[in-house]
Design a protein around this nucleic acid. Structure first.
Length: 616
RNA sequence: GCCGACAUAGCUCAGCGGUAGAGCAGCUGUUUCGUAAACAGCAGGUCCUCGGUUCAAAUCCGAGUGUCGGCUCCA
């Protein structure tokens, strides 16, 4: 499944696992020895077999690392040139030979110094570096150099903590998937290696199912469906920025309207602030130093400006436009501001990674004693909004990163308050150390979509530093003295672009009635049914429904097919019977035929369904 | 940004040194039809851009632009 692996904790624990791992054993025994699953062990073993094949076919290749990952494995190689598709086929064939030969995996423990000598002898520079790192880490912890382990199968041997399956014959059906460049240790200043990705499963059925899931994910790809459903497009005149077509914009406005309704109920007030902002603001906020690489800058009349990458600093101008009393708080200011972030060209991707986007952003200024209640209420906002589209949020608590501004004491206080709110809201959450923003600890909200893929969506940040301190925000308390408010930054959909992209894939383009850009298509059978159809459409539109009449020259069957392909929730055929009786029997896009109803009743029923914002 | 691949009609794609093709969509005509494709005809292209090689370039080479797969899973 598309489950994201947890990142491992520190290295010391792994060293213990290494020492306890048996020299040989069944996959189950090895599992007991510390692998997350026998599947992981098998995936790791497959990576070894791939490395064996690569070394056999391309002697002198330097090995990077080759871990198991979600759904498969990879191995990084340095052979001085990229792999070709033909290389992959040859490697795969060579791997099958190794699997057929059923070589046992043998574990051998070697003192670190000896291992280093071996790796150096084989000119495996990356392995030498790994060993040196291990030695350095042990030294830093005041421990003796650890004993390392090698796993051998056939003539191949690789530095590896294990565990592995008993022999290469235990490796299930596999397939090499792709090659990609990958920097050594993810660092763009280091050499670029060639990474081969592969997948391996316990059974042929599992492999087929995985490949089917990949194919299904491709079919649901919002970039494909966005074109097919006429929602949006991208053009090289503005890379990373969507052009919204009428239907996509309808989805957008519908989501926005729903959120505005929620915000009104929760006491938010909407503001709007400029996009083009003087450098001095960004210097004051800290963005100029810490967010520099992500800002688009421009100059005019000797002034430096930047397009805003975030709305937050400007909202403080509205806060400070008058003296605030403790009675004014919480002050909830929301803004649908257009943001620009200069993402590196190679990272742009459809609607999920863009340079220009709009968030359903808000900044809520609270007294410290109000923070936990407010955050708890926001978690409720998230649950409500996500229920409209059938998503269930999960929460993660992200703490202070290394690159941060502000007084450490304030950070400590902010983290304690956020944690308190999370605990009070109940439910599980995981902790992501050092994953906060440079100005605030935060709660990140994740969902799993219909294909089980995890996405990061909303965020709630408790800021005691950037806005309150740097912009000197105050309120007057009961005693008449000045106090600092806390600023909560919060977005629920997050970026509307990204949210819609995820929804397209989640629903495979079949949006629920309340969100569908066209909610119903009325299909006249013959030309004489066009006027009655228009009359019916007018009744539907009077109820606020988004309805089209298909007056094209096609046959009814074809019109149904087109509406099906456009994933329109309801189709209403109008022929002699319907025109006469002023009724319609809706056909759903699931192919279900509903009983005939009068035009007025049907319009009222669909309008009520729309207002309910149900996710199905 | 870096590595690799790709870029042909609105869409999906074929053609891979010798004057540009299909299906769908579009337009026109015929058809007026009961719940997933009526029939016929027509039109549609600086083959991403710029430069080079060649008698000849969509095709080969180079540069640029954009898109896609990655660069975050740490023996």
């Amino acid at each position: 499944m598309f489950v994201r692996r947890q990142t491992m904790a520190d290295g010391a624990i792994h060293d213990e696992e290494v020492l306890e791992a048996p020299a040989r054993g069944s996959a189950d025994e090895l599992l007991d020895a510390g692998a997350q699953s026998d599947l992981d062990a098998m995936r790791h073993s497959t990576a070894h077999v791939m490395a064996e094949a690569v070394l056999a076919l391309f002697p002198g290749t330097k090995l990077g690392i080759g871990p198991a990952i979600a759904d498969g494995f990879y191995y990084d190689f340095d052979l001085g040139r990229p792999f070709t598709p033909a290389d992959l086929e040859a490697i795969e064939a060579r791997m099958r030979e190794s699997v057929a030969a059923d070589h046992p995996f043998v574990r051998r423990e070697v003192p670190l110094a000896d291992a280093r000598a071996v790796a150096e002898g084989q000119a495996q520079a990356y392995k030498v570096e790994i060993l040196d790192d291990l030695a350095r880490r042990a030294a830093a912890a005041g421990e003796p150099p650890p004993v390392t382990s090698f796993y051998e199968h056939g003539t191949f041997s690789d530095l590896c903590k294990g565990p592995h399956v008993a022999s290469t014959g235990r490796i299930g059906p596999f397939k090499l998937l792709s090659v990609a460049g990958a920097y050594w240790r993810g660092d763009e200043k280091r050499p670029m290696l060639q990474r081969i990705y592969g997948t391996v499963w316990a059974s042929g059925d599992d492999l087929d199912q995985y490949l089917w899931r990949r194919a299904e994910a491709r079919k649901r790809d919002h970039r494909r469906l966005g074109v097919a459903l006429d929602l949006f497009s991208f053009h090289d005149v503005s890379p990373g920025s969507a052009f919204w077509h009428p239907k996509g914009q309808t989805i957008w406005r519908t989501l926005e309207t729903a959120m505005r309704e929620l915000q009104l109920r929760r006491g938010y007030q909407e503001i709007s602030t400029p996009i083009l902002v003087d450098k001095k603001l960004w210097q004051q906020s800290g963005h100029w130093d810490l967010y520099d690489a992500n800002m688009f800058r421009l100059q005019s009349e000797d002034h430096d400006f930047a397009l805003k990458p975030m709305n937050c600093p400007e909202s403080t101008f509205i806060y400070r436009s008058k003296i605030r009393s403790y009675r004014d708080l919480p002050l909830r200011l929301n803004e649908y501001g257009r943001l620009h972030r200069n993402e590196r060209s190679g990272t742009l991707s459809g609607l999920t990674r863009v340079r220009q986007f709009i968030q359903d952003d808000a900044h809520v200024y609270v007294r410290p004693d109000q923070l936990a209640d407010e955050i708890e209420a926001m978690l409720g906002e998230v649950r409500e909004a996500y229920s409209w589209v059938g998503l269930v949020p999960r929460f993660a608590f992200a703490t202070k990163p290394d690159k941060a501004i502000g007084d450490p004491a304030l950070w400590e206080r902010a983290e304690a308050l956020v944690k308190d709110a999370l605990d009070r809201a109940g439910g599980d959450y995981k902790v992501k150390p050092k994953d906060g923003t440079f100005y605030a600890p935060k709660i990140d909200i994740y969902i799993d979509d219909a294909l089980g893929r995890e996405w990061q969506m909303a965020t709630i940040q408790a800021d005691l530093t950037m806005l309150p301190e740097r912009f000197d925000l105050t309120y007057i308390d009961e005693e008449g003295s000045e106090q600092r408010p806390i600023a909560i930054h919060r977005a629920i959909y997050g970026s509307l672009e990204r949210f819609i992209g995820i929804l397209v894939e989640h629903f495979a383009g079949a949006f629920p009635l309340w969100l569908a850009p066209v909610q119903a298509v009325i299909i006249p059978i013959a030309d004489r049914h066009q006027d009655p159809s228009r009359e019916f459409a007018a009744i539907m539109r009077a109820r606020g429904l988004r309805v089209e009449v298909d007056v094209s020259d096609g046959r009814m069957q074809n019109k149904i097919r087109v509406a099906q392909e456009q994933k329109v929730p309801y189709m209403m055929v109008v022929g002699d019977r319907e025109a006469e009786a002023r009724t319609a029997s809706p056909r759903t896009r699931a192919g279900e035929q509903q009983p005939a109803e009068g035009w007025e009743e049907l319009a009222a029923r669909l309008a009520a369904e729309t207002a309910a914002r149900r996710p199905d």
